[in-house]
């Protein structure tokens, strides 16, 4: 071992000591995290990210010092040997040395790798942004469906509230009040508009060919029904409600393909097909809202009027 090597080993020791003392002063726990361990010859080494970083830092310090030392030493002592090429450029000659073996093997290795990459690696493992998007969405939807399969009321309401503020509040208002008559008011059902529908009929949801004809109830009966429906089916049921129940269900829960739900806000048909009713036109949201989100929105919107 010559003096230069000793000098550089000493230098790397100083580097390591400096690094370790800085790490110690920063209170970073290097050997504390023992969740993953590696056992070599019976010695248990904790594998934390800090530990690995530390090991890497030490390795870099040692390698740098050794390599620098080697070359500085070589520059001081080495003499050039070999056969000179015949040409001489203004007195500067060139040796006819063999290609350095490390260089040659690296070149060969790169050549083999490039053939593999060009013909197998890239075509088979090619990255696609759309592919990544599809995988992400599939994985997320699976997780989402699994997580919220039997979600409780509170979770659904919270979810519904956030969906509402993104997709619905632009027309129905942040509070769901319909921005003073610009869209459906979710905080209360209006007796007048129900009365209007009873009198004039409506086919806003296209749930049944021809829709609901006007004048199926009139006078006091119609008013009673309107009040009863607007109150959310509270109080005694007016006898004439039976006329409505035929299509909208005995409790106003709606009948598939016949009449929409009226004991609350009909979300299913409205979101799927959109609605052009008394106030204006609402577009369909079938491309933006999934079944679980629809459930969540239903819970949230019904909670606004209670």
């Amino acid at each position: 071992m010559n003096t230069v090597t000793i000098k550089f080993l000493a230098f790397s020791a100083i580097l390591m000591t400096a690094t370790i003392s800085v790490v110690m002063s920063l209170d970073i726990e290097i050997f504390e995290d023992t969740t993953n361990t590696l056992t070599i010859f019976g010695i248990v080494i904790p594998l934390s990210i800090n530990m690995l970083t530390m090991a890497g830092a030490i390795a870099i310090a040692v390698i740098t010092s050794m390599v620098t030392g080697k070359y500085i030493h070589q520059m001081k002592t080495d003499t050039a040997t070999g056969k000179l090429a015949e040409e001489s450029w203004d007195g500067i000659g060139e040796y006819k040395n063999e290609l350095p073996s490390g260089w040659a093997y690296t070149f060969l290795g790169l050549f083999i790798w490039s053939m593999w990459y060009g013909f197998i690696g890239y075509p088979i493992n090619a990255y696609s942004q759309i592919g990544e998007y599809n995988e992400e969405v599939l994985a997320y939807n699976k997780k989402f469906e699994h997580k919220h399969k039997n979600a409780d009321e509170e979770t659904l309401k919270k979810m519904g509230e956030s969906i509402f503020s993104v997709q619905c509040s632009q027309c129905h208002g942040e509070k769901g009040d319909g921005l003073s008559g610009r869209a459906e008011d979710f905080t209360q059902k209006s007796t007048e508009s129900i009365l209007k529908i009873i009198n004039e009929g409506q086919n806003a949801l296209h749930s049944f060919p021809g829709g609901m004809p006007g004048g199926m109830a009139s006078g006091q009966d119609a008013e009673d029904i309107a009040k009863y429906v607007a109150s959310g089916f509270k109080g005694t049921e007016p006898p004439m409600y039976a006329v409505c129940g035929g299509c909208h269900g005995a409790n106003g829960e709606g009948v598939e393909m016949v009449g929409p739900r009226i004991n609350g806000f009909d979300m299913k048909n409205t979101l799927a097909k959109g609605k052009k009713g008394l106030i204006g036109e609402m577009p369909a949201f079938n491309t933006l809202i999934t079944p679980i989100q629809e459930k969540a929105l239903t819970v949230y919107i019904q909670s606004l009027s209670n």
Binding site: Q167, S169, Q170, C171, G173, E174, L179, R182, G280, E281, M282, P283, A284, F285, T287, L288
Partner: peptide, 24 residues
């Protein structure tokens, strides 16, 4: 890019006249 899917004529009309009224 897909605004036509989820907004309607009357929404645009009211919004163009006074955006903050529609979107606080």
């Amino acid at each position: 890019h897909r605004i036509g899917n989820y907004r309607t004529t009357d929404w645009h009309e009211a919004h163009m006249l006074n955006p903050p009224l529609i979107v606080p």
